[in-house]
Amino acid sequence: MHRYLYIAIISLIFFSCKNEKKTNEKLNVVTTTTMITDLVKNIGGEYINLEGLMGSGVDPHLYKASEGDVTKLANADIIFYNGLHLEGKLVEVFEKMKNKKTIAISNALDKNTLIGSEYFASNYDPHIWFNVDYWIKVTEYVTEILIEAIPDKKAIFESNHANYIKKLGALKAAIHSIIEESLPKEKRILVTAHDAFNYFGRSFGFEVVGLQGLSTATEAGVQDVQKLSAFIIEKNVKAIFVESSVPKRTIEALQAAVNSKGHDVTIGGSLYSDALGNAGTIEGTYIGMFEHNVNTIVNALK
């Protein structure tokens, strides 16, 4: 009953909002995750009205749209979302919006290059932002969409795109340098709350293991904890990591299980996985988030 009531509310809001007049001439753009919001802001700047649905520390795997969110979506000219079933509980909302311009940024990528996953209906790991090369392609895709929507701002969007691409290239080079100079290959084992970092691992030579698997909707059980604790001891892993958008109790339970077997493992810090840091901070940007994560990982494992 609750499911059908939810759908009815969504339909009613869309019907009531579809003819609402815009308050100004700017393009109304809505984004889902904080990573996408930051990207679109870098390209669109002051020439769009940008609203992000999710904030710092929000888990997109479990996120449900509020009535206010649905109103924002109904009044949007363009909606950018990750796709690949990252926003699993929003899929039903997007399906109600077939007449809206909803853009999955993952469409910019060749799916043959993605990491497969049986945990998502898309059959792919959706955490694509942890591959900087992917994010560069996504940036190009978003820029094309915005130029198509506001052709007279083409030169500005292209300039913003060029500047941001340079920053992303510099970020990738800096990360490689930090890791290669500071962390021997045998120490590049990353244990986190859930498997959000596989693209990071493939890009920068880390073995990545998540306690909860790819989706936080999957609870970790006692057997998962015991299996991973044995792995940590076998590999002599010195630090494991919590995530800002995932409750830390599972990693604390893992630490306790490892320590009870006579192996000392510390919690090396908190990583940003499915959401950026607080707005207005360095970690509240994609580049700042990535730098924070890499520095936290390297400092704890070296």
Rank of each mutant, 00 (worst) to 15 (best):
S177V: 05
L171Y: 04
D224L: 02
E158Q: 14
H161I: 05
I178V: 14
A196S: 15
L171G: 03
E186K: 14
F204V: 02
N160V: 06
K185A: 14
Y164D: 04
V208F: 03
D224Q: 10
E158S: 03
G221A: 08
F157M: 10
F157P: 03
V191N: 01
F197H: 14
G201Y: 11
N236T: 11
S159Q: 13
A170E: 13
A173R: 07
F197S: 08
V208M: 02
N160L: 07
V191R: 12
A149F: 10
E148Y: 10
I175G: 12
E219Q: 09
A170P: 01
E148L: 06
E186A: 05
K172H: 12
K153M: 13
T216Y: 01
A193R: 02
G169R: 06
A220L: 08
Y199R: 11
E181S: 15
A217M: 03
K167S: 12
E234R: 09
D152Q: 14
L183G: 13
L228N: 10
E180T: 07
K187M: 08
V208N: 05
E180P: 00
A155K: 15
E219N: 00
Q226A: 12
P184T: 08
A193G: 15
L214H: 07
G221L: 08
F204S: 03
E219K: 00
S229C: 01
N198K: 13
F200W: 01
G205Y: 09
L190A: 04
G205H: 10
S159E: 15
A217H: 00
N160H: 11
K187C: 06
Q226I: 11
L211M: 07
N163I: 09
A155N: 14
A196R: 07
Q212V: 00
K235H: 10
L190M: 07
S182E: 11
A149R: 09
E181T: 14
S229D: 06
A149Y: 11
R202T: 05
L228M: 15
V208Y: 05
K185D: 14
I150W: 05
D224I: 00
A173L: 13
A230M: 02
F206Q: 12
K172R: 11
I189P: 00
S159G: 15
I175Q: 11
G201D: 12
E186V: 01
R188I: 03
G201K: 02
N160I: 08
H161T: 10
H176C: 08
N198S: 15
D224V: 03
E186T: 09
F200M: 08
V222Q: 13
L168E: 13
F157Y: 10
A149W: 09
